[in-house]
Computed example of a mutant assay.
Amino acid sequence: MIFPFSGSYVSTTLAGSHNKSILGRFTYLFIVLQEHCVIESKPDHFLDDLRLHNPWTELKQFAKSIDINDKDPVVHKHTPYIVVLVRLAEKWADAHDGNMPSTRQEKKEFKDLIRAHMLNVDEENYKEAVDSSYKVSVTPGISKYYVSLQKIYQAKAEFDCLALEHHVKEILKQIGRDPDSISRAYIKTFCKNSRKLRICRYRSFKEEFSSPIVSEIQRYFSDEDCSYAMNFYILLRAVDRLAANYSRLPGIFDSEIDEDIPRLKTVAASVLSEMGLNGASLSQDLVTEMCRFGGAEIHPVAAFIGGVASQEVIKLVTKQFVPLGGTFIFNGIDLKSQVLVL
């Protein structure tokens, strides 16, 4: 469900999420769902996994069958860059106790190792090995090596699909369903698209409030980039609690603003303590600003968070794109937003 809060508590059933609290220029939104499956995550940058960091036996054997030190310029230029990477990765690992390049300096040295094996500056296969270890770009008709390499990957994909099919049938038997109720074609499609599938699991509204992840909260509070958003979140929760206690939002009456500021500060300190932040304090300016808003709902902020909420609902309904993974905080003063996993 989506529950919009703006001064008074109003609920509108729409989809599986709990949403926003708007106060002046601050607002937050979060999804409350036990689990959500994303069929098509549509990643911005999708990199094919060629298993270069952990090649299987057939790929290793194929790579070893090709001499990357062959001085024939035609053979050297037409050696698949995947083979170059597999062979040189093995050479690197042998010289580094079985470890692959991890630091920036090591990665630079590994690129230099690849360049050192070039015979000519125009060898596109070696340039591709340097520039992109994950992107396949097969040039038609280059050599028989690419056909063999393609068959190796296809055979591995078929083997993995069969292994998954066997596992699926075992699970179906265990739960009392027909082992053939999920077709092989469906399983093959699943394997083909598995890297774009995502499962999002969320903590419940109750868990977030009653069982905070102290280590994450402390990290956010001490992190310069996240501390402002964390301050807003705590204050918005404190405002909700104060409103429940006094049946009104702080600062709603000008004559009581001076009294509401210390009240809100006290409630916020209580929220901090419950979240495991004993001894921590919030910015006095932010506390004052919260009271100064007087429960106002600024239209541009409401429109913005409404748009974000609508966007997340579409993601949840269509099961496309990855929804927010935590609490979305919008700071309308600096026009900044952050997602905190609480």
Results as ranks from 00 to 15, higher is better:
328 F>C: 02
2 I>L: 07
165 E>V: 03
265 K>Q: 12
152 I>W: 08
313 V>S: 08
90 E>I: 07
185 A>P: 11
280 A>G: 03
89 A>Y: 05
62 F>T: 11
119 L>H: 01
318 T>G: 05
264 L>V: 10
209 F>I: 13
112 D>Q: 15
186 Y>P: 01
247 S>K: 09
94 D>S: 05
141 G>K: 07
327 T>Y: 04
239 V>H: 00
49 D>C: 14
8 S>Q: 14
280 A>R: 14
245 N>R: 15
211 S>C: 09
170 E>Q: 11
325 G>I: 14
258 D>N: 15
326 G>H: 02
158 E>H: 10
319 K>R: 04
121 V>Q: 14
224 E>K: 14
209 F>Q: 13
19 N>C: 11
331 N>G: 01
110 F>V: 01
109 E>I: 09
175 I>K: 13
236 L>F: 07
312 E>N: 06
162 L>K: 05
132 S>W: 02
169 K>V: 00
195 R>Y: 15
242 L>R: 06
229 A>G: 05
85 L>E: 08
65 S>D: 14
233 Y>E: 06
250 P>R: 04
290 M>R: 10
322 V>R: 08
85 L>P: 01
127 K>F: 13
290 M>A: 13
207 E>H: 12
36 H>Y: 03
65 S>T: 15
268 A>E: 08
336 K>Y: 03
40 E>W: 15
123 E>C: 09
66 I>H: 03
321 F>G: 06
138 V>A: 14
66 I>D: 05
277 L>F: 06
259 E>P: 00
318 T>P: 10
292 R>D: 14
299 H>E: 11
19 N>E: 09
67 D>T: 05
207 E>K: 14
131 D>P: 00
246 Y>F: 05
114 I>N: 07
28 Y>E: 12
179 P>A: 02
336 K>H: 15
210 S>N: 12
263 R>H: 06
305 I>F: 01
132 S>L: 05
128 E>V: 12
245 N>F: 09
151 K>F: 04
7 G>E: 09
113 L>T: 03
160 D>H: 00
325 G>T: 15
150 Q>R: 09
37 C>Q: 06
17 S>F: 07
137 S>R: 13
255 S>A: 13
254 D>I: 11
29 L>V: 10
248 R>Y: 01
291 C>L: 08
268 A>P: 00
119 L>M: 04
20 K>T: 14
226 C>P: 04
62 F>S: 12
58 E>F: 08
306 G>A: 02
135 K>W: 13
98 G>H: 01
237 R>Y: 04
330 F>C: 02
66 I>K: 04
134 Y>A: 10
84 V>S: 02
271 V>D: 00
159 F>H: 13
324 L>S: 07
333 I>Y: 08
302 A>G: 02
288 T>A: 14
279 G>L: 10
46 F>I: 13
25 R>E: 00
165 E>D: 07
314 I>R: 09
221 F>K: 11
269 A>T: 09
174 Q>H: 15
313 V>L: 13
93 A>H: 00
202 Y>L: 03
7 G>H: 11
155 A>Q: 12
155 A>W: 07
282 L>H: 02
43 P>S: 06
85 L>V: 12
109 E>S: 14
341 V>G: 08
123 E>D: 11
145 Y>W: 15
128 E>L: 07
102 S>A: 11
139 T>H: 06
247 S>Q: 12
85 L>D: 10
331 N>D: 14
176 G>Y: 00
261 I>F: 10
314 I>P: 00
123 E>K: 10
21 S>D: 03
